[in-house]
Design a protein around this nucleic acid. Structure first.
Lengths: 239, 239
DNA sequence: CTTCTATACATGTACAGACAAATGAACGGA
DNA sequence: TCCGTTCATTTGTCTGTACATGTATAGAAG
């Protein structure tokens, strides 16, 4: 275990990363019990308070579950479907027994215009990846996914087959989400969106604008447009 | 400072609440510098690690900003409507410098119909309290609040003056929120809602349904309708 | 076989002390 | 004046210890 006291990175942070890496890699699986604080103290050679802080923060971040008197366990992967968590529409549809299908309308590289550059926190003119997908549930359109991706965070984005793996799933694999920003608004869709979603001119839509970060770096910016008559966003949480 | 060692509530948590309360009440304003760790240690009489944990967690929660070598400051208010926390619209408006006003359109007891009873998890025919308010920001309508309340959770609901205290504030006082459920949809408002919000027929609105629980018991069910052109819901969180 | 109890173990919190790192202000010299 | 040094202050981290609290289990008691 590399927890060099001279390193500028605090030890508790190094321990967090080491545990997080084991979980991300699949080395430690959801439900597994990990070593106790006392064992980690012995193995790593730091004080228990340092171990405790690392484990406590990982618990706050949802990666671990701790039970007093029992031990520390790898948390189950969040079974999404909550508004307040970043979710994958394919899983949601399957969860309610539907058949998910995605059509790739557009998938290409572009040069960032000025507003796009500001949004993605890059320089104007830099290359960005752009995808436009239509998601269907039992052949009925339910979501337009219009996404911009920062190339350096997902180099092989354009080579993916998004009829098989959703952009969300691919991106979380190559750049796990550490932070997200959401904005929701109600809009009347433009002609192109109306055509894709097969809805009437006056039907209001929900537009969810989401930006996601991985390890402090912006990864992707996406607009999700839902037909108001066929879709709701919902979520439940504890205060 | 009441940090009785016998209390079941941890001291660091009590300290968090005390600081948080000072901020919420406006006693300490955004940008203010608060007492240093050393001063708090002296005033409260706990160890510095305990103070440090309280301040560190409040910083993670976004209430404080800490600068090494300088001090600890009250964070600026987020100038947006927080989607992922249950908040009070009056505070939101005041936080961005606006003037809040509420008009009570309706306030009465009713007998629960069948759908209402299911929603509130009570028996059909049971009494419910019903309020309908219009919230204005600088005299411009920004939200219709249509609320049902379970009487046994807030007995004096009908006696409140909701031009002075919002239903949200009153309810959180008598029944603190332990859990909340949200559903968001886009709708075209009915004539009555259009009249209240002073909007055109084709303007889409965001409707937020929220049910709140206190200590496992359902307290209230509310529909919040926002004019799409004037309002967005937004939020940011860490994964 | 069931139930209670003692025990070991794991996490949760709290403390006192120590050093590191960043900042800002006071001070002194060119 | 301008620049670098020194110093006090403040937060950031780490250690070692102590006790509290929750859980599971083995063994005793019934």
């Amino acid at each position: 275990m590399n927890t060099d006291p001279q390193s500028p990175i605090p030890r508790y942070s190094q321990i967090k990363r080491m545990i997080s890496a084991r979980i991300q890699s699949g080395d430690w699986r959801p439900g597994d019990r990990i070593a106790s604080e006392a064992e980690l103290v012995r193995d790593i050679g730091v004080s228990r308070m340092t171990i405790n802080r690392a484990l406590r923060e990982l618990t706050l971040e949802g990666q671990l579950i701790r039970v007093q008197g029992v031990g520390t366990f790898v948390a189950e992967n969040k079974a999404q479907s909550a508004l307040f968590e970043v979710k994958n529409i394919a899983d949601e549809i399957r969860a309610r027994g539907g058949r998910h299908q995605a059509k790739v309308i557009l998938l290409r590289r572009e040069a960032a215009g000025d507003p796009t550059a500001r949004l993605l926190e890059i320089n104007s003119g830099d290359e960005v990846y752009h995808s436009l997908l239509l998601h269907l549930e039992n052949d009925i359109p339910v979501q337009i996914e219009d996404r911009l991706v920062v190339p350096r965070m997902a180099k092989d984005y354009l080579q993916q087959d998004f009829t098989r793996i959703t952009p969300f799933v691919y991106l979380t694999e190559v750049a796990p989400i550490s932070e997200a920003e959401h904005v929701i608004e109600a809009v009347l869709p433009q002609a192109e969106d109306r055509r894709l979603l097969k809805i009437a001119a006056k039907e209001p839509c929900i537009r969810l604008h989401r930006r996601t970060w991985s390890d402090g770096k912006l990864v992707s910016c996406v607009d999700l447009t839902y037909p108001g008559s066929r879709y709701r966003l919902s979520g439940r949480f504890r205060a």
